[in-house]
Design a protein around this nucleic acid. Structure first.
Lengths: 326, 326
DNA sequence: CTGAAAGCGCTTACAG
DNA sequence: CTGAAAGCGCTTACAG
């Protein structure tokens, strides 16, 4: 069952069938009707593999995230999928597990499939495959973290400013021994958040106390235990997964929040208000960011824009019970 | 840059280049080397769009879930992606938002793209598009819920038995006024869980008290408020999202768990042990189920099997603090 | 073991 | 407004 069969039945050429299917306006009313009827009667479905080859592109957008189980990325994926679906694009979702090798392999697939564009939350910002995509004319929008190639667009959050503000708040509440559970210094969100914490501590004349948890639950647990052995009164945790680890550690050590320890967490997962006490968090405007990334992507796909753009969003400090100053 | 260019440079025919690329064993060592070198020197990358058309299939597996933000499905997606990646397949992820229309539209895309197979957690089990996929020779594995078409495989959990066991446990602990926050009766997991609850109540001579929350946070909140106005001592909640709503409702009403109300929740999201008290849950073996679905899919793709199979997994009751009998 | 040739099913520039 | 024809870049049955 192919276009030729439809054409024969409708008494037109395959070219006309193709035009009808693609909404080309210059088709006679009578022909259009006959084609539509033939399609209906035959139950014809166009073979997209053929049109992909002919057009040298697949009507899909690649979304590459480093951890699909992290609610932060899930929220973003959801928002992007929503926006893409409404525009008639489908989403090819790839999970890189924070490994450069898996990222590269997925980007190669996306290039080979000639997707319309890639929204990438990079595990490896230096990946040369990013340049290959851009060389092929496939736009890349970096999300959450920027990439090395200057031709890519970026949608990020002000990590330094957000964590600085959160730390300042703890300082203002009278805390002096404030710890920071950092992610990885090698990752931009990690170094930025750490820098924000450092700035706030140094400007207040306080000594920074840092341990790294690699953005993972286990790491957050370990880092928290290490930091608490020094005797802190407040803690800032660098992302939602490490916060889970931190909460476990606190429970094991019998510490009560906020009485024994004030807590502020980066990211605002839905469970932040379920725990006792509810967590004070730095929330990223994920939906707005996803919408922005999608708009940038569409501008690129439609060729409206060629100069790279970079959009920076602000965190919102959501004060709840855990910081003790609600 | 195409195969012909590589062939020319290596001094062979395009057919030989294709054979080298596809690992066809009958290529002379010398030719293989020359081809590999030419590929290297030219930085050649095969155009997958062309091979997809020629082979009439895309090396991808479609995964269709009804709610990507539900940790239950996220865990499954992750496990499937893992397994698929290791087998060399990529995953096209689709989110149907529990709407039959979006499901149909995505299944159409997957059919048009001639994916190797579809793992589907159906919003609409009657969707005729499922039959179309099977007609095209594209295997369908139903996950979490079965589908109407008997040719599809299925990987499900014993909803009736799981909830019956959980309810019995509450009965055995002496509870008589036990409520149930159900999902939707129209959805198999909803009706099965409800049936399990009913059975346990009736066999104990107790009166069932049910409200439906549509598997959504808001719905869980409303249903819980409605049920609690009757004065309960125990509650079974039908999935993890409604549990979030239930916990909110309990907090608002000033009820303490498990003193004022014993709680058992279906699904075992990672935050179940973060709340106070930790939740007693019915955990699905999501990773095992995903592994099973993937194995079924691979059997189909390789043509090893043609009779439909149905695999039923058991819930595991994880007793923690919230049911009051830990 | 290797190559020439056909063909996968569309789309589109071109001619009328 | 419409059709004949070329071509997207591979793969593979066939012949040698």
């Amino acid at each position: 069952m192919k276009m030729r069969d439809v054409a024969r039945r409708a008494g037109v050429s395959p070219a006309t069938v193709s035009r009808v299917l693609n909404g080309v306006p210059t088709v006679g009313e009578e022909h259009r009707r006959r084609v539509l009827r033939a399609i209906e009667e035959l139950g014809y479905r166009p073979n997209r593999l053929a049109s992909n080859l002919r057009r040298q592109k697949a009507e899909m957008i690649g979304v590459v995230v480093s951890d699909i189980e992290n609610p932060h990325f899930t929220g973003m994926v959801r928002a992007v999928e929503d926006a893409a679906y409404r525009k008639g694009y489908r989403v090819l979702l790839c999970n890189t597990d924070e490994t450069p090798q898996k990222q590269r392999s997925y980007l190669e697939v996306l290039a080979a499939e000639r997707v319309l564009g890639v929204i990438l939350s990079p595990s490896d910002p230096e990946d040369e495959e990013i340049g290959e995509l851009l060389d092929l004319g496939i736009p890349v929008v970096a999300f959450d973290r920027t990439v090395a190639d200057p031709r890519a667009d970026a949608v990020v959050v002000d990590n330094v400013g957000g964590v600085r503000a959160a730390t300042r708040r703890l300082v203002a509440a009278g805390h002096e021994r404030i710890g920071f559970v950092g992610g990885s210094e090698g990752i931009e969100t990690g170094s930025g958040r750490l820098a924000g914490y450092r700035e706030a501590m140094l400007e207040a004349g306080l000594e920074p106390r840092v341990a790294h948890g690699g953005f993972r639950i286990e790491g957050g647990w370990e880092a928290t235990r290490r930091l608490l052995s020094e005797g802190l009164t407040a803690l800032v945790v660098g992302n939602n997964l490490m916060t889970i680890g931190a909460l476990r550690a606190l429970r094991e050590m019998g510490l009560r929040v906020p009485r024994d320890l004030a807590l502020v967490a980066v990211d605002d997962p839905f469970w932040a208000e379920l725990v006792e006490p509810p967590l004070t968090t730095l929330a990223q405007p994920v939906r707005e960011m996803a919408g922005c990334a999608m708009r940038m992507m569409l501008e690129r796909i439609s060729g409206e824009r060629s100069e790279p753009r970079r959009e920076v969003f602000e965190f919102e400090l959501r004060v709840r019970g855990s910081c003790g100053t609600a």
